[in-house]
Amino acid sequence: MRIILDRAKCTGIGICEALAPTVFEVDDNGELVVLSAEVPEDARNEVAEAVEGCPTMALRLRS
C-alpha cells in the first residue's frame, strides 16, 4: 500500500501526524512530509485512520 498525498488539498493541519507520527510529519513551513510512502506493516491501522481523518481529504491509499 502506498500513500498518495494531494499537495493542492493539504494545508498542513497535522491530524495525520497526530494519528500516525511515524509516517507523517509537518515541517516548519507547514508542508506535510510523508516519511514513508510505502505504508509500514506495523502502522497500517494508524495510516488508515489518518487517511480517513484528513480534514481536507488530501490523502489516499493505493495498493
Binding site: 498542513g12 497535522g14 501526524e17 497526530a18 507520527p21 510529519e25 509537518v26 515541517d27 516548519d28 513551513n29 507547514g30
Partner: peptide
C-alpha cells in the same frame, strides 16, 4: 504561531 513542526509532538 507558525510552529507546525512542533504542535503535534507536544500534543502527544
Amino acid at each position: 504561531l507558525n510552529g507546525q513542526r512542533h504542535v503535534m509532538k507536544y500534543r502527544r
